[in-house]
Simulated assay, not measured.
Amino acid sequence: MPADATGGSGDTYTGGLRKVARVVLLDPDDRILLLNGHEPDDPADEWWFTPGGGVEGDESREQAALRELFEETGITDVELGPVLWRRMCSFPFAGRRWDQDEWYFLARTTQTATGATRLTDLERRSVAGARWWTCEELARAHETVYPTRLAGLLRRLLDEGPPAGPVTLDAEIV
């Protein structure tokens, strides 16, 4: 049930607080791109989440966001904006517990075709695809989506624009 346990350094994650950069990617029609993930050994245990993953080495969170977006979606034509939200989360995935400090960056693109280009082994076993969602579709969705209040957060973002500074979301511990 991760928001993302599959990105970047995910195959080698051994515990501790993982720094994560996530991307709230919007197209010209204000649709958001979400990835469809599932437990590696149980495709029925599925959810939707924003692209992104763990910071590697000495890269910045901005660099990690752009790298992860490219690896998971193939999208490179991106205007990376401010950090919208921050969230702490902890969840079981792929037989271990993941503790993450996630930063959600706003990004815009005109490139809507997606194609995973450099998935890790864990991602190949747990990411089933990508989909662009309208805010209305997201609000009506019965699927599990992370962060859990994403539809409302997106609506507020579209109505009011980015917040003056990052908003701290409720921690999600599963």
Rank of each mutant, 00 (worst) to 15 (best):
L69M: 09
G54V: 13
E71G: 03
D77T: 13
G54M: 14
P51K: 01
T50N: 14
A44P: 00
Q63T: 09
L80G: 02
T73H: 10
G81A: 00
D42R: 00
S60T: 12
E46M: 12
E72M: 09
P82A: 09
A65V: 08
V55N: 03
V83Q: 14
A64E: 12
W48V: 04
L80R: 01
G54T: 14
E62V: 02
I75L: 06
E71L: 05
T76D: 12
P43Q: 04
P51M: 13
R67H: 13
L80A: 01
V78R: 04
D45L: 02
V83L: 12
T73A: 09
V83K: 10
A44F: 05
E59W: 04
G57V: 05
F70D: 11
L84F: 15
P51R: 11
E59Q: 02
G57K: 00
A65T: 03
D58G: 02
A64V: 03
L66M: 08
E72D: 07
D77Y: 12
E46S: 15
D58S: 13
A64K: 01
F49W: 10
L66K: 06
E46A: 15
A65E: 03
G53Y: 09
R67G: 03
F49A: 14
E68C: 07
V83H: 09
L84I: 12
G54K: 14
D42H: 04
P51T: 11
T76F: 12
I75Y: 04
E46K: 13
L66Q: 10
T50S: 15
V83A: 15
T76K: 12
D42G: 06
D42I: 01
R61P: 00
T50C: 15
L69A: 02
A64L: 09
Q63E: 15
E59D: 10
P82N: 03
D77L: 09
R67P: 00
D45E: 08
E72W: 15
R67K: 13
P82S: 02
S60W: 11
D58N: 13
E72G: 08
D42C: 05
A64S: 07
E72Q: 15
V78K: 06
G54Y: 10
I75D: 03
A65N: 07
D58M: 04
G54S: 15
G53K: 07
G53C: 02
G52E: 13
T76E: 14
P43T: 11
G53M: 03
P82L: 05
L80P: 00
G81F: 02
W48S: 07
G52S: 13
E59G: 00
L69N: 05
L66A: 07
F70H: 09
P43C: 09
V83F: 12
G81S: 03
V83P: 09
T73L: 14
T73C: 04
V55L: 07
E46I: 04
W48A: 12
V78L: 04
W47C: 07
L66P: 00
E46D: 13
Q63H: 08
Q63P: 01
L66W: 06
T50Y: 13
E59H: 07
E68T: 05
E71Q: 14
G53E: 12
G57Q: 02
V55T: 03
E62K: 06
S60C: 04
E79D: 11
T76S: 13
E62M: 10
E79Y: 05
P82C: 05
D77M: 04
W85G: 04
E71S: 14
V55E: 08
E68I: 08
L80T: 04
F49G: 05
S60E: 07
T73W: 12
F49D: 02
G57E: 01
E46W: 14
